[in-house]
Design a protein around this nucleic acid. Structure first.
Lengths: 348, 348
DNA sequence: CTGAAAGCGCTAACAC
DNA sequence: GTGTTAGCGCTTTCAG
């Protein structure tokens, strides 16, 4: 059925020779809108058949050379082991394929000079666009390089504006407020906040937490706001510190689910029950959130939609163009079993 | 300092014009081994300086067109949300960058036809090589396409041989045996095995589990081997089934840490303490394993080395070439707190 | 030591 | 309708 002389890739020239037409005719037929360009149906049929039979595959680099898009999307992720970004990348990969793109991974290493090297690789016209996942404000040289690069860039979950680039974010304030109102309705009056590095989303979530206290007149001891590494281990550290307080909180708002998981484990290890002794709220709604006992109450984001919006920003819309340079999506509080009424023991 | 006419990418022609030499001279200078090719030191110096000053960047596609490697590694992952593969990808990304490569993600979608589409993208000479992460035997058409593609392919954690491709695997049998001996030393005589889809690594781990029982004359009720989805939720399902048994196991061997996590949660929810009432062993040693209460005893793999070996297979060794077409690495049991003596209640 | 020229696979004017 | 011709940015003979 197939030619067994399967040595060298089949080029247009091969197809042309086989069909007895010129190479450019083959190009026209294989590319142009089906019936837009003037070619005889007969030739068209013959060439198409031959192309399939010979197993012709366009060579993307040759096309790219001619100025065609590479159909490659560069994804730069702050920390690819972060469970949240893992799901984000899956969504991105799916959305990219849906549009015919592939994703080139550029997980930003710890070291600044590596992030730099990254630009060189990704910027070298290899990708049609760059998608930043997470906050990069602590990588100023990298951002500077990006600005110099002539390539569409979008910042996803950067948390705040990234001067000069379109951004797609979640309304962190609304998410935190929903969580706090939920806790308040359950009688919690002594709340703690645990976050990772004070960047982007985290910073916004913390600000919302603090503002809520100020607005509702609840006293907020500085000890109740903790910064740790954004890992379960970090969450454990934070719990340890909070549990050691003279008057521990009855509820903890974690800036991410990853932290919440660590907090819950540490609470169990400490002999507490959840939500009996302590309520915990997360943020992100990673898949693990449903699989963790007793189910994590958390703030869900429309990840798929956000990713789609980001892709639209950089490679152009599917239908209508996005209006603004910065898009914000509304999150939703998902109430599971990790939150409940404040324990009675709470003092006046 | 910099030219402000920062419009179009700087090509060799630009550098040549600026230096007053021919474009081919620029090519020679910018590529050839530093002093191997005959060019006057003076010209060399001037061209190099100009290249930097103008911000010249080689265009990889033009090079690729000429037959140069694309420096792109395609990574096809069964399930990119799998916590284990997440760490694997990070390792791969790091190793790739170390060698000057970038990673193109091709996470295989659920649906077979999508996995197929994958080939078209990755096979089209975009990548220098393909790295398969996980088992793909249930995707025969994909594997078939791979075989037809003229591109180096290696299977990492495919679990068993992949007919025709080099493979890099862990010695699953040794890992399971270490776990079982550890449990046996603690007096456990009634053990259960929980695994995901019976593919690759999972199948091997299960076989080792069963063989161990046969060899040591321990009776193994069929009910004690469960297959569930490879997620924490799957682990919970498995635990529920095992706990409902007339004589539940005193220890559970999970084929992956992800499952172990679900099992542990379900055990807590069931009122059990670990390892007091139940011992749990995992496999993989994902980062979460240390961050989970009370610390998961699990089988660790030399991920970095394995990834490096796989890359060496497909893009050539750094120093010496690997001898075999299939490499196997030795795992190591990491004992944490999720395993302990079998509870006294165990019947005779 | 260096320039001219060809060509990688493909697209796009421009002829006929 | 279809062939011819350039040329994308780069490497590589082949002449000087």
């Amino acid at each position: 059925m197939e030619d067994s002389s399967d040595r060298r890739p089949v080029t247009m020239k091969d197809v042309a020779r086989a069909a007895g037409v010129s190479q450019s005719t083959v190009s026209r037929i294989l590319n142009g809108a089906p019936l837009k360009i003037p070619v005889s149906p007969e030739t068209r049929r013959r060439v198409n058949a031959l192309a399939v039979e010979l197993g012709y595959r366009p060579h993307p680099f040759a096309r790219a050379l001619r100025g065609a898009p590479t159909m490659l999307l560069g994804a730069v992720v702050r920390d690819i082991t972060d469970l949240f970004f893992t799901t984000a990348i899956e969504a991105l990969s799916t959305e990219a394929r849906r549009r015919g793109y592939s994703v080139v991974l550029g997980h930003a290493a710890q070291r600044a000079d590596e992030a730099l090297a990254l630009t060189a690789v990704l910027e070298a016209r290899q990708c049609d666009a760059l998608i930043l996942l997470g906050d990069f404000t602590d990588e100023p040289r990298f951002v500077e390089d990006l600005r110099a690069a002539r390539m569409p860039v979008v910042a996803l979950w950067h948390g705040a504006e990234l001067e000069g680039f379109p951004t797609v974010n979640v309304d962190n304030r609304a998410g935190i407020e929903a969580a706090l109102e939920h806790l308040a309705a359950h009688g919690h009056r002594r709340l703690a906040f645990v976050g990772g590095e004070s960047l982007g989303d985290i910073r916004e979530r913390q600000a919302a937490f603090e503002d809520y206290h100020a607005a509702s007149g609840i006293d907020l001891a500085p000890d109740l706001v903790r910064h740790v590494q954004n890992t379960p281990a970090g969450g454990e550290d934070a719990f340890a510190a909070l549990a050691a307080l003279p008057e521990p909180p009855t509820a903890i708002v974690a800036a991410t689910d990853v932290l919440a998981i660590g907090i819950m484990y540490a609470a169990y290890a400490h002999g507490l029950s959840i939500p009996g002794d302590l309520s915990v709220v997360g943020f992100d709604d990673i898949p693990l959130a449903t699989a963790i006992y007793p189910g994590l109450t958390t703030v869900h984001m429309p990840v798929t939609e956000m990713v789609a919006a980001a892709v639209t920003f950089v490679v152009g819309g599917e239908d209508s163009e996005p209006a603004e340079r910065a898009q914000s999506f509304e999150p939703e509080l998902i109430v599971r079993r990790s939150t409940g009424p404040a324990p009675a023991r709470t003092g006046t």
